[in-house]
Design a protein around this nucleic acid. Sequence first.
DNA 1: ATGTTGACCTGTAAGC
DNA 2: TGCTTACAGGTCAACA
Length: 269
Amino acid sequence: MPELPEVEVSRRGIQPHVQHQRITAVRVHQPRLRWLVPETVQQLVGEHITGVSRRAKYLLLHTAKGELIIHLGMSGKLRVVHRETPLQKHDHVEVELASNQVLRLNDTRRFGAVLWQPADAPLALLSKLGPEPLTEAFTGEYLYQYSRERKNAVKNFIMDNHIVVGVGNIYANEALFMSGIDPRRSAGRISRARYERLATAIKTVLVRAIERGGTTLRDFTRTDGQPGYFKIELAVYGRGGETCVTCHSGLREIRLGQRSTVFCPRCQS
DNA sequence: ATGTTGACCTGTAAGC
DNA sequence: TGCTTACAGGTCAACA
């Protein structure tokens, strides 16, 4: 579920409930996530959460001592509920607050992560990441310069976190369709003008998805509900074999870097 | 160095 | 009906 928009929507959803709260307990029911949840997460107890930020698809709960880092992997979801709410299957980690609410990470597939980053010892994990797509540092010119001599497919190129973060499989497909670029095309053989369109398309699809998700933020703590996840209308992803919204010819589905890739052979070159 | 593949894990749907 | 296989939002380590 989580691509960058979902992570950002989760951030906005939990922030009002956790910011300025004191942490009263941290309970780990299943430490075996992508990495073993370290005992040092207990450092959080007694600390105040000063803010919630996002870097790539990582969420950071800030305290004076350091940050709790949360990644949602493929199937992770965050919920804020009253402490008495019964645990659900796959609720692996919970952060209890002085408000008597708890932040819970539910992650079926356990590809997510919960890590502790001491204020004086930043994790290497975050240091190698490329620029955020929704900043001015990320431009068509940047993609153009970075891609020279690169031979891999442009779709794999834009999904590489060292190049730019937060472009997952769904929105990579969508952005390439929007900018009329064949996902198989070698990254090093794409013009500056086309990279301008691609960078703009990436920003557009991400912003649009965040906006759609944001409309349900008020329901974030619904007991039944997911935080503002949304069904945005997708032009290509999940529509292999169906009709192109632009030219009405058939969409083609292939595998690229082990990931499902859908494009319109007529509109994308 | 850059590019590709396997691995992690559970659940669901499709195929036989 | 039941068993097997493929696939699903991510991304790191280990290879070629």
